[in-house]
């Protein structure tokens, strides 16, 4: 059964269509990778789901239209990790993660909220940083701390916009493992990404966007084919045939002539 149902979403900026009749249905506990070249509409789709951009079409959560819900209710269902990792003030890590919980600023956090913050910091492995200030963290640490903030919101669905871009390979793999673990525990994860090999390895399912349209949706092996990669990204790629070790490695940019031949 689908948990999050995106139906016929179209987003226009003036004359250009950023998203064109996009329909995707996502089940509970799924980890879905949203891929596609720059400008394909990945981030815009996340923002439409969150209600940050007005679009035609519908997004339903358990058959209920998200547009009909108030902001508080939506905040209890969807959490968002944006691409930008800036934090305006030098907050402590613990305070920052606590922003995920809605509580009075002055009273001590209630035990349930405190538990959520501790649990979020455990999952993202940032407990040892809790007294550090955000602006003293490395890029990888900061990404995990911001993820912990989103987790502390304790929502069934997590939307993350390029959460692993700019991280080193070890942090990227660690981050994907953490997301996979969340999905295993029943959370639904929708992330946009450019790292095709990592998407192939960790996502249960990939949705390939091109010029605002869904051009492929399915198991990584069925989406990351040489044909689709040539058509959408304009690259030739090595795609392994090994059943247990699926590897995708973009090799070279195709010229217009090459593309015409595919």
């Amino acid at each position: 059964m689908s948990l999050l149902e995106i139906k016929n979403v179209t987003l226009k900026f003036g004359e250009s269509r950023i998203l064109n009749d996009v329909s995707v249905s996502i089940g509970r506990g799924e980890m879905v990778g949203l891929i596609g070249p720059n400008g394909a509409g990945k981030s815009s789709l996340l923002k439409v789901i969150l209600g940050l951009l007005p679009a035609s079409g519908n997004v339903h959560y358990k058959k209920r239209d998200l547009k009909q819900m108030n902001l508080e209710e939506r905040a209890s269902l969807l959490s968002y990790l944006p691409q930008e990792r800036d934090v305006a003030w030098p907050l402590s890590v613990e305070t920052l993660v606590g922003l995920g919980c809605k509580r009075n600023a002055f009273s001590a956090p209630n035990p349930k909220d405190l538990q959520r913050v501790i649990e979020a910091m455990r999952r993202t492995d940032v407990r040892n940083l809790k007294h550090r200030l955000v602006d003293s963290l490395s890029g990888g640490e900061r990404a995990r701390v911001l993820m912990a903030r989103a987790l502390a919101q304790d929502t069934p669905v997590i939307l993350a916009d390029e959460p692993i871009s700019g991280l080193d390979p070890a942090h990227q793999i660690g981050f994907m493992e953490m997301l996979e673990d969340l999905a295993k525990n029943g959370r639904t994860v929708l992330i946009t990404m450019h790292e095709l090999s990592l998407a192939a390895r960790w996502c249960h399912r990939l949705v390939l966007l091109h010029q605002g349209r869904v051009v492929a949706d399915g198991k990584p092996r069925n989406v990351l084919t040489e044909q689709f990669l040539a058509k959408v990204y304009g690259v030739s790629a090595y795609v392994s045939k090994d059943q247990n070790d699926f590897i995708v490695l973009p090799i070279k940019q195709l010229s217009k002539k090459d593309k015409a031949g595919t």
Binding site: L50, L91, L96, K102, R103, A105
Partner: peptide, 18 residues
Amino acid sequence: GRGLDALSLGRDVAFTLG
């Protein structure tokens, strides 16, 4: 108060926090 706290993380996140 709390809205300003949420704004530390940017306008979009503050919105998604309700």
